[in-house]
Each structure stands twice: as C-alpha cells, then as structure tokens.
Amino acid sequence: MSHYVGSPSLQTRTLPHSAQTQHAFAERVLRLGRAMWKHRWLYFMLIPPMIYYLIFRYIPIYNAQIAFKEFFALKGVEGSPWVGFQHFETFFKSFYFNELIINTIVFSVAKLLLGLPIAIILALAIHESRFMFFRSLVQTVTYLPHFLSCVIMLGLLLALLSPSSGMINEVIKALGGQPISFLTSPAWFRQVVILSDIWKETGWSTILYLAALLSVNPDLYEAAEVDGASRWRRIWHISLPSIIPVVVLVTLLRLGNILDGGFSQIWVLYSVPVYSVGDIIDTWVYRSGVLDFQFSLATAVGLFKGVIGLALILFANKIAQRVAQQSLF
C-alpha cells in the first residue's frame, strides 16, 4: 500500500479503509504467529518425519520425470535429455500392453470375486457358532496365514504341488495320473495364485465383517425369534444387511486398487514359463527396470499405473462417500 503515500488526495480517501485491512491483516499474521509459536515443539517434532517424507516419498515423485526422458545413469535424473511421451507410446503399442493389463485385472478381480463370498460365509459361520472355544480356534488359525511371508507360502505350495514330492501330485500319481507342474504350467498358474491368496487372506478379511456382526443389536435377533423367523431367515434379513456397508467399502477399495494384482505373491511364485499368464504391471516394471536397465520405460509404465490408480481410488472414494457416507481413507 506504500505507493498511495505520494498522492495526498488518494491517501486521505483510502487511509481509513487500507488502515483497517492492514490492521486486520497484521492481526491475522500476529495470531498465526502466536499459534505457531505456541506449537513450536510440535513443529520441532515434525522435522524428522518431514525430512523422511521429503526424501523417501517426494524425491521418488521428482525422479519419476525420467518417464519423459531418456535416462542415462551417468547424466543423472536432471541431466538426461527430454523425449516427451515416447516411452508411453512404446508401452501402449507394445505386444505386452494388453497382456499386462489383462493379467493384472484378472488377478485383482478373481481374488475379489472368489474371496469376498467365502469371507462373508466364513464370518457368518464364525458368528453363528455357539462353541466358543472352537470359534476362537478357527479365528486364530485362519488369521495366521495373513502374517506369514509370501516366501513361506511358496514353501507350503511346493509341499503340496511339487511334481516330484508334492502331496497333490502324490495323490494324482496314486490314482494313476501324470504329475502336473502346477507352478510352471500356464494352464494352472493363475488358479494357484488366486487360490493361495484366498487361503492366505480370507480369514483375516473376516475381521471387519465380524466386527459389523457384533455391533448388531441383539434385540433384533430376539424379535425375529419371537416372530418365528428361522435361523436362515435371521441370517438373511438381519446379519447379512448389517455387513453390507462394510462389503461395499471393501469392494470399492479393492476396485480402486485394481491395478495392483498382488506384487509380492506373484513375484515369489512366477517363473519364465508362466510370464504370459502371470506377469502383472508391477512385476514387469521390476524386470524391465532393475534387470534390463530400461529405467525410463519402466518408470513410464509405473507412472501410468500410478496416475490411473490415483484416479480410480479417488473415484471409488467419491462413490463410497455417496453410497455409504464414509471415506475410504
């Protein structure tokens, strides 16, 4: 406002007003400053986590610019020359584009469509069981695989599926059949991945449904009992509706992450013979980037997945807010 000072007429006309806004502004700055000073120790605490976020979460986003560059290790991220959308075009036109997208979505959707009903039935069964000890035993045992590393799952799968000594192949041999190399057979690989994921995660995913079932008012069941509703009708009309909101939220969240497919699990289980049915976006990014040194192309594919993924999860969140009046994050 200092440029008004030279003109007396303007000054007299504008002084009360500008002085007022100036005063209000100063007041606000002062109040903000006081609030910040009051919380100075909190800002002090925030320094290490903020440095962590800057380095390990935001520098990678900055590094992602190599998706639009031809990355040379010697020239570094900044020094490498720009090439525009060349790597994206390479990816879209490549023969593996369809394969990667289809594989990724097949795994995500199959795990969801098969896993969800099993989890719901399991939760309802656990909830209805009246043998308390057995109930908690089932919960403990079915939750456990969630906490095991994917490598342990590989060990367990080999014990079942190995062509030389796996249990299932022993049974096949005993019945007079030829042993099947499940993990390296394109006809079987997807089924193995999907079923083993269900084995690992279904129990744990019942937790949210069980919590929803426990929050149902017991009076409802009693009233239905008095009205002569059978057990099945009570499950259908009281239990099931009570978990629908959770089912909707879980489904939306999973659909928002549809491009994930389950990197760790597939990375541990897959091998060259099953790339055509098992390779997902993330595993391809790893191979082409880390193993084949195509850093720019791999980053472009990763960035493509990231942008679509961001849009999907925000969209899923909008629907969740509208349908279930709840945010996903």
Partner: peptide, 9 residues
Amino acid sequence: LFHVGLIPT
C-alpha cells in the same frame, strides 16, 4: 494414494 512405481525409489 499416488505411487510412481518401483524405479524412482
């Protein structure tokens, strides 16, 4: 919510 993939990290 926004991941840029493995390579930048």
